[in-house]
């Protein structure tokens, strides 16, 4: 078992013929992900991956032909909001948006619209999902993680790889790794994913990787204290980050004295979470 994606997921790729889209489609397909189609407006009827994956003009036609139940978006930032609206209107219940640099006001409109439609969005500006041994829906390198009983949730990309790699070196595997993305307004937050892990019978422990900015880690800490029965270990990036400076991710910024690493670490420790001093230490805390 896992959360969000597994070997039965029927995935389409929006932006499948673009540089990044095609590269990662190849990687995901090689991993064994069940990719049933792709979308590039104007290229409907073509095939990619040596005739193995059909391309459609719209998400609607792709869904009708393939019965897809998840989509991954690789289109440039200025087109990504439209791609998310399109997927939601076509009735796809799970959207994973990898694209970085989507405008905040666009994301507020997308998020509020998707909430009304009860569509689950992961990202944007995220590495996607990996259920080791079953499905790779995103850009997390498949070979750095093995199947296991640890749920992993993170706001970061390469930092997540670092943790998965450290876990693998200790023989520790993951049920699902969820990259929720580094933007200030995103689709799914820590709390949502912790709830899913709490209810997933295969997940026995959880690793949470947060960073400065916002207060989602604090909300997660509250949930852990109130509801969670499974042990959680965490790491918070940005302990040395200066206030007022955006540390790469649009969401990683200490504003008006709020969102500091110290506050988050304190909230998590108060909730009984073991917080690591550096990422390679996290797996040893579980």
């Amino acid at each position: 078992m896992s959360i969000l994606v597994d070997k039965n997921t029927r995935l389409i790729v929006q932006g499948i013929t673009g540089n990044e889209g095609l590269f990662h489609t190849t990687q995901m397909f090689a991993y064994g992900t069940n990719i049933v189609g792709g979308v590039t407006p104007g290229k409907g009827g073509e095939w990619v991956l040596e005739g193995k994956v059909p391309v459609f003009d719209s998400v609607k036609t792709a869904r009708e032909a393939t019965d897809a139940n998840a989509t991954i978006i690789f289109v440039p930032a200025r087109f990504a909001p439209d791609a998310m609206f399109e997927a939601a209107d076509a009735g796809i219940p799970l959207i994973i948006c990898i694209t970085e640099g989507v405008a905040v006001q666009d994301m507020m409109r997308v998020r509020n619209y998707l909430d009304q439609k009860k569509v689950r969005l992961i990202g944007p500006n995220c590495p996607g999902l990996l259920t080791p041994g079953e499905a790779k829906v995103g850009i997390i390198p498949g070979n750095i993680a093995i199947p296991g009983n640890v749920g992993v949730v993170s706001r970061s990309g390469t930092l997540t790889y670092e943790v998965l790699y450290a876990m693998k070196n200790l023989g520790m595997g993951a049920t699902t790794c969820v990259g929720i993305g580094g933007d200030p307004v995103n689709g799914t937050n820590f709390l949502d994913v912790l709830e899913m892990f709490e209810h997933d019978p295969m997940t026995e422990k959880v690793i949470m990787i947060g960073e400065i900015g916002g207060n989602e880690e604090e909300k997660a800490a509250q949930y852990i204290a109130d509801k969670m029965t499974k042990p959680v270990a965490a790491f918070i990036a940005g302990q040395t980050a200066p206030p007022g400076k955006r540390m790469g991710h649009a969401g990683a910024i200490i504003e008006g004295g709020a969102g500091t690493a110290a506050d988050k670490i304190k909230a998590l420790e108060t909730a009984g979470v073991k917080v690591a001093k550096h990422p390679e230490e996290i797996p040893t805390l579980l």
Partner: peptide
């Protein structure tokens, strides 16, 4: 460093071992 989260973390770990990062 490649990746914002890992870049921040690398700064943190330098500090953890008694150094001071010159940049992000």
């Amino acid at each position: 460093v490649n990746g914002a989260g890992l870049a921040m973390t690398s700064m943190d770990v330098i500090k953890l071992f008694g150094g001071e990062p010159a940049n992000f």
